[in-house]
Amino acid sequence: MLQIQSLTRRFGERTAVNEVSLSIPAGQMVGVIGRSGAGKSTLLRMLNRLTEPSSGRILHDGMDVTALKGQALRDWRTRCAMIFQQFNLVQRLDVLTNVLVGRLNHRPLISSLLGRFTAAERAMALEALDRFDLADQALQRADTLSGGQQQRVAIARALMQQPRVILADEPIASLDPRNAKVVMDALRDVNKRDGLTVLVNLHHLDTAREYCDRIVAMQAGRVMFDGTPAELTAEKVREIYGVDEAEFHEQAEEAVRPKHTVAA
């Protein structure tokens, strides 16, 4: 059970996330939707503690995540794996090492610094890659892979962490529709087969409706809607965002597009 209690983050004058409270049972697949700048990204980054909350609390199975420091914080990060819009792989390293990065926190520092991974860890990484049909690319450099492949490598890395929660920040915004489907299917697969809690930021309502058990809609840092996909009707969308669904998509697409260029 992941509990978020009046979580707030301010950047100077601007409040990116404003008093967000959510309670997510284990094994749920939650889609967070909203325009760019609605605070979805900041919310997810706070859960992983890549961004520090200004106030509020995060509890995971009763443990206060917001108070963690040092090794305990790194252990928490291992348990809630993160997936990014730009994949955030180490482009110059091979795919296998990128996946093994997911094991770094599980092993002694010196052998990690030297890059000495055990045979068992390598086999485990290959298995994770194989699950997404990427075992044959294991020894290629990450930057030789397509965007869709890179995102699947990122999911394999996340699985290596043996996490309880997966946070996916706009995982398909930089991908074409075909690759987007493959990646979303992969996320659904880890949710259903491994029983992991998945929180995924999306700007596309249809994708959210198709894949998620529950949808949280954000606007200007606040949660405006929290319910099942069936409850998020066209009228509801108009009520929250003041535009109809087609216009909403157009604006959202526009907002994520400039970031595409970085992927190259």
Binding site: N48, L50, R74, D75, W76, R77, T78, A81, M82, F84, Q86, F87, N88, L89, V90, Q91, L93, T97, V101, G102, L104, N105, L109, S112, L113, A154, R157, A158, Q161, V262
Partner: peptide
Amino acid sequence: DLGAWDGVRSAGGSWALACRYA
């Protein structure tokens, strides 16, 4: 590019490991 840095840090890597890998 700090993307890789975020990637390693979010996977629980320490500062030194993120320097080494990212």
